[in-house]
Structure formats: C-alpha cells, structure tokens
Design a protein around this nucleic acid. Sequence first.
RNA 1: GUGGUUGUAGCUCAGUUGGUUAGAGCGCCGGAUUGUGGUUCCGGAGGUCGUCGGUUCGAGACCGAUCUUCCACCCCA
Length: 454
Amino acid sequence: MKPSIPKGTRDFSSTEVAKRNFIFSTIKHSFENFGFQPIETPSFENSSTLMGKYGEEGDRLIFKILNSGDYLKKVDESLLSEKDSQKVTSKISEKALRYDLTVPFARYVVQHQNDITFPFKRYQIQPVWRADRPQKGRFREFYQCDADVVGSKSLWQEVEFVQLYDTVFSKLGLQGTTIKLNNRKILSGIAEVIGAKDKLIDFTVALDKLDKIGKDGVVTEMLAKGISQEAIDKVDPLFSFTGTNEDKLASLKGMLESSEEGMNGVEELSFIVNAISELGLISANLDIDVTLARGLNYYTGAIYEVAAPKEVKMGSIGGGGRYDDLTGIFGLKDVSGVGISFGLDRIYLVMEELGLFETVELPKPKVLFLNFDENESLAKVKAIKALREANIKSELYPDVATSNKQQKKQWKYVTNREIELVVTSVNDDKFTIKNMQTGDQNLLTVNEIIDLVN
RNA sequence: GUGGUUGUAGCUCAGUUGGUUAGAGCGCCGGAUUGUGGUUCCGGAGGUCGUCGGUUCGAGACCGAUCUUCCACCCCA
C-alpha cells in the first residue's frame, strides 16, 4: 500500500511547524494583550448545531460523520429507494465536523450563559474542516484564529478589531495589508434606495464581484437577477468608488439620504474611520469598500475583510463582522456580537512568498556533542545537563562512533542540521568546542561555553 | 457541485510518430581521498511507469473509469 493522506490535508515538517508556531504565538499574544480569553470547543458538533447556519452552500461543505452501529437498519426502505442523499444523510449522520469557530462559539455562549460574565471576550485557535475542492490557499483542514466579543453594542469594539488586525500583521512583519471595511446597513440602504430590498442578497453578491468581472459583468448579473436598469443607474457612483475614506463617506451620505438604515451605516463607518485616523495604524491600511459583501448571512453591521499585500495573489487572509443576533438561533435573544478571524494557513503562504520567516528560530541544538568515545559520554552528558539548565539547547549524538566511517556520519549530521557549535572531546573539565562557521577551535570549561553562547 | 490540469526511482524531472534488459541529477548505502565535517573520484541499491479496465502482435506512451495534484468558477480563511 502506498502511504497517502486525504485530499486537501497536509503533513507539516518540523521547520514548517516552527514557522506556524511563530504565527500562532504572535496571534495568541496579541489576543491576550487585547484582553481576550481562550476557550476550546469539540472538533465535532451535533449536526443540528451546524446545519442551516451557513446557507445552502455551507451545508454542502460540512463534513458529516457517519453514525456508529448498523445505521442503515434504522432507515426506511422507501427513503432509501428515493435515493435523496440529503434526506438519507440526516438519518444516518447526527454529528459533523466543525465548519468554523463562530457558530460553535454562539452555541457555547448560550449553553454557558449563566457562567459567563458579559461582555465576554473570547479567543479560539483551532482547526476547522470543509469539504471544499482544494486549490491555492484553500484546504479541507485549516486553522482559524478567532477573537469575538459578545454582549456589547459599543462601536469601540469595531475600532479595537481594526487595531488588533493592524497589531498582529505588523508584529508578523507583514507590511501593507489592507483592512477592508463595509457595513451591512449600507448595503441594505442601497438596496432600499433603488427599490430592490427583496433582492439584497443577489445585489450584494453581484456587487462583490466588481473587481473580478468589472462593471459590465456586474450590471449583466444584476439584470439577470431581475434588478431594473433604472435602479442600477441610481447607484452608478458605486462602480467607480474611489478617493479617501472621507470622500467615500460623503458620497454615500448623498446617495443614502432617503434611507434611515443606510444613514445609520454611514454614521457607524464614520465613527470607526474617525477613531482610527485619531489612533493611527502601524502598517495596515483601512479602506472602505462598498463592494465587500461576504457570504455569511448573519452579519448585521460592520463587515471586515483583510487583503494580503498587493504583490501576493491570495484570497482574503482574515474576515469578520458584527452580528446582532447570532445566539438567537440557540435561544438567547438580543446579545450582540462582533468578531474577526485570522486565516493562519493563508497568512503562512503569504509570509513564505514574501520571505518573512528568516527570523524564525528552527528547532535544532545550539551545541552538539559528538560521540566518539564511550569513556567521555558521562562527562558530556553532565555538561549537557548544565547547558540545558542555562537554557541552551544541546544534545549528545546518540550512537558512539566505533569507526572512521561512523565519525564521518556524525559530521555529516552536523552539516545537514546546520549546527553552529560542536564539542568533540573532553580533557578533565575542558571541552574541545568548534565553531562550524569560522572553523575556530577552543578548549573551554562548561561555564565558559555558557558565556560563549550568551 | 462545474470546467481544465497533473501523476515515471526517497526528491526534482527526461523518456522522441506505441517496439527489445525504463534514464539523469540530487539524496541514500559502500569504497578511496580529506588532520575532525562541508571537496573530489569510483562503485551500488532502489521503479508491477497512480490504480483498474480496454485498444494492439506489442503501451510509460493511445482510449475509458477512478483516485491524486495544481488551477479557474462557485464559495470562502
């Protein structure tokens, strides 16, 4: 049998793990710095928790887990002969793999509402699974890093999340990301103004494709969805929406005058933009983007999406927004939430492409003790113990070399793992230590080695 | 889910219009040289050519199915 792993999954080498851990710890540190606390939820949930929360498309992409036991026995003969996969699935599968972290979080909040102090700021870094077809930057198993606040309607939260994005990407050394900002209320307002409120979803989905298929493509799609030419003409400025955030807000204000909801959205956006211009950003750009729709249907206010630096071709590396009533579905009304997500795997690809991992320390010993003489082993192991206590990664080559050939193998190990310092032999309390880059060789005590490294 | 693409030694790839024992580089193993490595030289092992089926006197090369890779759409992190 040829060993293999399922489509869309990956193994990670120790180098890759080291780089991934660098991203994880940077994000985690910033989350905690901003006052979020960690929780974890199970890899799989009851199907009823997940199904229907992500739209029709989402349901299709959820990995279902087959019931245990003789699950087919419980299914009606007539149902089986119908060959309706969806109906049969609900009978033979009661559990499903986590599709994202937001819905399980909503479930968590409702289930533990009595133990939670609101506003509740939680972060969660765990893998999610989607039965999608893999392609660039898209996997069937990948990590999301989510931070959300529930139980606060304050717009300062929205401001804080912009800062959080900026902080994390700056710390990662990822310069020039663009945080795109929109507001669902503006989209609703636009739809209202053009008299196509019932076609809000079609309208936004089409508008979302503006940068991909151009104005003509969008107009064609809107017409096909039954939106009138007259209506489209009313929002013509949207198709060439440029200038500063302030310009865009002014333009929106004019366009949405007659829509209360739309004006609300403009006000919210203004608040965030003004706050951020006071606070400043380290390396990210904040950009109002009215074409930003995002598929998830639970957003009600702010919508975020982060684009990688322009020189890298990659889908969004983060997204999020405000959802006024996510927990309502689980029976807890009027709890507003807002949150963002970082796509670890895509961030990794972007950083790799930009060569930003140079500073990541690879998991290898600083000092390697060669093992040429059994009689020296104990003295070397004692020295290693002292070095480790001084927080210096060190190890003994496990097998004693009993021939020239085997010594050579140890030297090769040193070369391949790019080890800097090598101890060859011991004389009383002095160790022969060689710097592999310079070729310098010295006779030092353990304490002198510690000083040398530090 | 739709459309396209890929699949040959551990890795990266060659393999001409289908024709005798399927190749290279790197890596690996052994030997020689090298003061204790990174060099060079010599030798060796390792492939049912993704899988199954078909066409043919004969297929790694042609056809079909399937799995896998990568990409676009859809959707999204």
